[in-house]
């Protein structure tokens, strides 16, 4: 048997289920609630969440540093930031409880999750920076793209 014992506690041990089946339904409820919240937010699109909370710092090295540290609330609309956080929460529970990552050995967990997260963040960062750079080039263009 792969793993007879299931870890039945979620939310850092704050919520303990009596059986594995109960845990499955609990996680399903959680995922459903998150999805419903996402859909409601996506349809309403509250205006207060449509503009970034902060504008970018101008100036020298520390402004750049500040822009990097606060990038989620400077360059992202709060709504999109919420969507991304909720998505990662959903991904966590699918991986940890549906795919039983919670019950795997620590080394296995790290080999799979950290590899993925590192490579994906790196690729995303490079491509989004590059896309934004090309956008700026198009905007201040010497060539007419729309004719």
């Amino acid at each position: 048997m792969a793993h007879a014992e299931h870890n039945l506690a979620i939310f850092r041990g704050n919520l303990k289920f009596k059986s594995n089946i109960q845990k499955i339904w609990g996680v399903f409820t959680l995922l459903s609630i998150i999805t419903i919240v996402e859909v409601i937010l996506g349809i309403i699109k509250p205006t207060s969440l449509m503009a970034p909370f902060m504008s970018a710092f101008e100036g020298g090295f520390f402004a750049t540093l500040g822009n990097i540290i606060f990038s989620p609330i400077i360059y992202l609309k709060p709504l999109n930031f919420i969507f991304i956080v909720l998505t990662i929460v959903k991904a966590y529970y699918i991986t940890w409880d549906f795919m039983h990552m919670r019950d795997e050995a620590k080394g296995m967990r790290r080999a799979v999750v950290w590899t993925g997260i590192f490579l994906i963040s790196y690729l995303t960062m490079i491509l989004l920076f590059e896309g934004d750079y090309i956008y700026e080039v198009y905007k201040a263009n010497y060539i007419k793209f729309d004719f």
């Binding site: 993925g116 490579l119 994906i120 690729l123 995303t124 491509l127 989004l128 590059e130 896309g131 934004d132 090309i134 956008y135 198009y138």
Partner: peptide, 17 residues
């Protein structure tokens, strides 16, 4: 997952562009 993230990151690239 890396293949899919390649697709989604490319989508993000084009969208930023």
């Amino acid at each position: 997952a890396l293949t899919f993230s390649g697709f989604l990151a490319a989508y993000g690239f084009s969208r930023y562009k």
